[in-house]
Design a protein around this nucleic acid. Structure first.
Lengths: 208, 208, 208, 208
DNA sequence: GATGAATGAGTCTTCATTCAT
DNA sequence: GATGAATGAAGACTCATTCAT
């Protein structure tokens, strides 16, 4: 008998979250039904409430857990890099890679989470600031090392950079949703774009 | 003689839209009730449906009409400017001014409109592309005149720049909502930020 | 200037009733909107309420007035006939002629009026009994003259005969609605059917 | 152990249908509220929508299911009878018995279903034609056996006979609703009426 | 009288959540 | 723990009716 017929006990939570990512990305948070998430997770409706307090809680938990994963990966990658410029480039590249690889997840994190003022105001900040602060930290490090201009406010810059990348991501995500099977045009290729943005940013940042 | 008890005929539509901007900004689109919009507009619930086909239609109409106004104003301002650099600076400054002056509106345009995939996919593009294309046009003009680098893809750049400004806007808007009475910190002053971003962008853009 | 631009004052009521007949026949009473009747009558919504107390009142008035016209015509025709058998035949023929000539009206009288228990219970009887009583009267006259069987209850017979004709009418009306442009099949030709039914009835009625 | 508090699983659907029959008969379909049906069925409003797609669907399902039951019973009864005349008589008697025993149901089937043009055009035909065709079949059988006149069109005759019975039914149903406690007058006694009509019809049908 | 914009009561339907099994 | 049938609160929208012009 070993494992349960369909899945081992504790990954049920993960299955629900993964189903939620898919469903929310497809229909939007408000357009999604808990029962659809349940069906997609191959779980009974009521089961969801054994793992999450409410529909809102699914979104919040999803956000926090996925953000943590992303942060962990990002931190690890960046920790191996010395140069602030290369860190900055990598940050941008990695974010866009994420979007290319997990568009559903990024759509939820990027689009659906902005949905209700409530979510934005109450939850986005928590895990989000950490993500943003990475940009700020790289900038500050570069400024301290004298390779980045010192007249840029890290608080503003990190927002601006994030916004730029995020908007690009949004375009991809929506394009992918609208035309699921098409190859993106060359000038929208993740790597190309990442390079373009990185170069532009670094040029603007360059000291002296 | 005199005006009607409450308001003259045609501004009723405007009253509804203005009420919707307020309510949507406060509670989010899905959190808003049509009846609340009606109350805020000092109009009966049913009256809304004399002017709009549905709750969705309020949001869409709102978007289209406000966007048109904004575009008209922007176009006029920019048409009086020669230099691409100055145009770019002005674009940024004007957008941020808008956010500072009409935070509710900008929140709806920026946040609430992203809400449903449906809105984003079907409606944002329409009025939106025009707004984005202004950025692209300025870049192309600058590239043609030789003052901006030619290796930047206008399609990507305009997204990125818009995203940057938009994200900054979002922060303000949310901050204003969370702490309605506080003065924003100095480094978030619209004019200061606008200047910072503009300089950064122009530096990155500068040819040679 | 003479008459009003569109129609003389007092026929407005008739225009509304005629419009109502059309609309009710097309969409059913509950599926019809007062404003649609108004539009079809080329009258403002509010005007309807100068002539009728309510939507219900339109239906009731329509019923009473049209029924009276029909009764008048029927009475006149039958008054010129001596033989009960011929009267009976004529009654059937005239009813079916009516259906063939004014299908909309007959649909409303036949179908829509059955709609609400309220109408059936409260209004149908009034004008209706008169119509039914004509059948009863013919039967009784025939029974008295010894040409019709005496063991038939006039109350039951008149209902039954009316039902038979009415059901046939219904089929026509619905057929006409479903296939507006088709000729009815030969065996459904009003005159043929009228003859068939009349003969059948008279055979059943024949004394001795 | 024991049955569920209120009722076993599958009869809930039946409870709803039965409640709908009552409520629709009392108030008419359009005058009935779904919540009233729910209350009468001792079920939550939402539960209705687990069993039926819409209010319309209740009526349609009700019609189809009840009609099927009636047809089954009728077919069984008639299958045991040889003589076309006796079959005809029995058909009439059984129909009227149904009306006497289940007046609410028959009212809904007879009156409310005629209500909307939509129901009549789309749904009545389906189950209805079968019911009518039984009459037609008996006639044809009788014609083939030489006991019924051959000059009657079965299509017309079945309509006419049905209309006759139906109209009689209607009178009872309405009378019962208007004066719930009164005994019907002798000449309206179902058995008496059935006999009268049957004899009349058979006389009209008789060959030779 | 005529108009038609405005009203707001009324209802179907949805769907997050619960809880008996 | 898991299920999923049942719940019932909530809200968008319609449309008969009114009334200021």
């Amino acid at each position: 008998m070993a494992t349960t017929r369909r899945a081992s006990r504790e990954d049920k939570r993960r299955r629900i979250i993964d189903a939620a990512v898919e469903v929310f990305a497809e229909k939007g948070f408000f357009g999604s039904k808990v029962s659809e998430v349940a069906r997609r997770a191959d779980v009974a409706d009521g089961t969801i409430y054994l793992y999450f307090k409410s529909k809102d809680d699914i979104l919040i938990s999803l956000f926090e857990e996925k953000m943590e994963e992303i942060m962990a990966r990002l931190t690890e990658i960046l920790s191996g890099i010395e140069e602030p410029e290369e860190k900055m480039r990598r940050y941008i590249v990695e974010h866009l890679k994420l979007v290319a690889q997990q568009p559903h997840l990024m759509q939820v994190l990027t689009v659906e989470l902005r949905q209700s003022a409530r979510f934005i105001k109450e939850y986005r900040p928590q895990g989000f600031k950490k993500y943003l602060s990475v940009i700020g930290a790289i900038l500050e490090e570069g400024q301290a090392k004298g390779v980045f201009r010192k007249d840029l406010d890290p608080g503003v810059f990190r927002r601006a950079l994030f916004g730029a990348i995020d908007e690009i991501s949004l375009e991809w995500v929506l394009r992918a949703q609208a035309h699921p099977d098409e190859e993106p045009p060359r000038h929208l290729d993740p790597r190309v774009v990442a390079e373009q943005i990185a170069q532009f940013i670094l040029r603007g940042l360059a000291a002296g």
